[in-house]
Nucleic acid binder design. Sequence first.
DNA 1: CGCTTTTGCCGTATGGCAAAAGCGGTGCCATACT
Length: 501
Amino acid sequence: MTATNQSTSGSDNGSVTTEQLENELTQRFGFAHFRPGQAPLLQALLSGRDALGILPTGSGKSLLYQFLSPHINGLIVVVSPLISLMADQAGRIRRQNLGKVAVLNSQLTVAERQLVLQQLEQYRFVFLAPETLQQPAVQQRLRQITVGLLVIDEAHCISSWGPDFRPSYLRLGIIRQQIRPQRTLALTATANRRVRQDILKNLRLAATTFVYQASVDRPNIYLRLQTVADETSKWQQTLMLVGQQVPTLIYVATRREAEELTQRLDQQQPGIAAFYHAGLSTSERNQIQQLFLKNQLRVVVATSAFGMGIDKSNLRLVIHYQLPANFESYLQEIGRAGRDGQPALAVIFVMASDQQRLSQRLLRNRLTPGSIQRFFDHPDDPQQLDTNQQGILQAYRQAELPAAQVIAILQTTAELRFQQWQKFWTYLTSTTCLRQQLCDYFDPEPAQLHHSDHCCSQAPTPSLTTVLARLQLAQIASAPPAAARHLRQPAAVLRQLFIES
DNA sequence: CGCTTTTGCCGTATGGCAAAAGCGGTGCCATACT
C-alpha cells in the first residue's frame, strides 16, 4: 500500500511533495487532507507515469482527474460504463466550474454529436462509453488532438464484462495505443491480483505502471454469514431484518425473484418495498432510485442491475437473499452500505441447496464450441442464440478473430466463472472469518482487520437478534452532514458496540 | 448437467403417469417504427 519507484526523470513535476498537493487540495476543493491513495496516484501521474488505482467505493476517485486538469495539456477523456455515471460526473464538474465538459453518447442527436466532435479541442473533459470509443469517427478525431489523460473508470469491467458481455472493453488497449494519451489512469474499487493483471494487459500498460491498492476492508460494515435450513427460515429472518425500519437493499438472483419477494413484503407492510431490475424502463428505474435516495422508499429488492453509480450514504442494511456469483460482486454489493461511515450490517443467507442450483446455472446456456464454429462458418444460420450471444459473436467476428481463438476465450471465461463461484462457495461454507477471507482475496498484503463475530472462534457466535440489538441501526441519524463522510473512526464506534465491557 | 415443474393424455376419478419444458444477470449502440 505504499508508493514505490518514484520517477526520477522525464518530468518537471516529478518532485512535487504531498504537502504541496494538499495545499492545492485545500485551495481548490476545500478538503484538508487526501483520502488514502489519492496523493501517491497524483504524484505518479504528475511525474508522467500511467497508473492503476484500486480505491474503495466513495473514496474520491473522480477527484483525481478533476485535480489533474490544470496540470495537464490536452483533453481529459473519461471512459465510463454507464450513461448515468457519465451524466453524474459531468454534472458535478459543471457545478464546480472545473472546465468545459461534454458527454458523447446516444442520448445526443446526430447533429449534437457531430458538433461536439468538431469542437472537441474546446472541451476540458469528455465522457464516453467504450462502444463510442470504437467508432472510427471518434477515434480519428481523438488521434488528431492531444489527449492529456485517458481515464478508465470502473476498470474491472474490462475483466468482468469484456469477454462475454461488452466486448468493446477488450479493445480499449488497441484504441489507447492509437490515440496515444500522455497518461492513462485506470480506476476501480474491486480488483484482485488476476483482475489487476487483466486490466494492465488489456489496456496494454507497461510494467512500470504505478499501482496503488488500498485495503478493501470496510470496518464499519458488520459482515454476517447466516446459514439457513430452508426458504421458510430465510423468509422469517428477512422479515425480522426488514422490521428494523432502516434503509435496506435486498439482492436476489433473478428478476422474477425480485418481483415475487417485493410482493410478499408488500403483503406484510404495504408500500415499503419496490423491485429494481433491468427489465424496468429507465424512467421507472430513476423514479425508484430517487425515492430510495430521498428515504421515501425503505426497501429495494434488486438484481445486480442496482448499484453502480448509486450513491446513497445512509444504507444501513444489505441482505443477500440469494448468493452473488463471486467475491467481486459480493464486495461491490455490500460496499454500498454505510458510506456515511456509520455502522451497517451485511447479511448473506446461505442454504445447502444453493450450491447445486447455482453451479447448474453457470453450466447452462453456454456457447458451445460447436455453435461458435457454426456462427463463424454460417453467420446467417439462425441458431438458438439469444441477442446477447449473437452480439458477442458478431463483435468478435468484426474484430477479425479466428473462430478457434474465440472458442478459447469464451471457454476460458466460462471456466473462470465456474472456478470463481466454487471458490466463493468454499469460503461461504468454511468456518473462518469472512472479512479475513475477503482481505486475503483482494489485498496484496495483510491489512489490519476489524473482526466481526464470524471470525472470532473464541467467543460463541451471537444470534442475529443479539447483533441487531447491539447495532441499533435504527438509532443512527438518517441524513448525516457531508463532513461525516470523512469520519475516520468507525473502528472506534464498532469497538464500543461489539467488544463491550 | 440433472432436478423440479408443467403439460398432455388417459378417459371420466379430480387422480396417475410419462414426457417435455424450464432453468441469470449485468448495457452500450444502431435502426426502424409511430
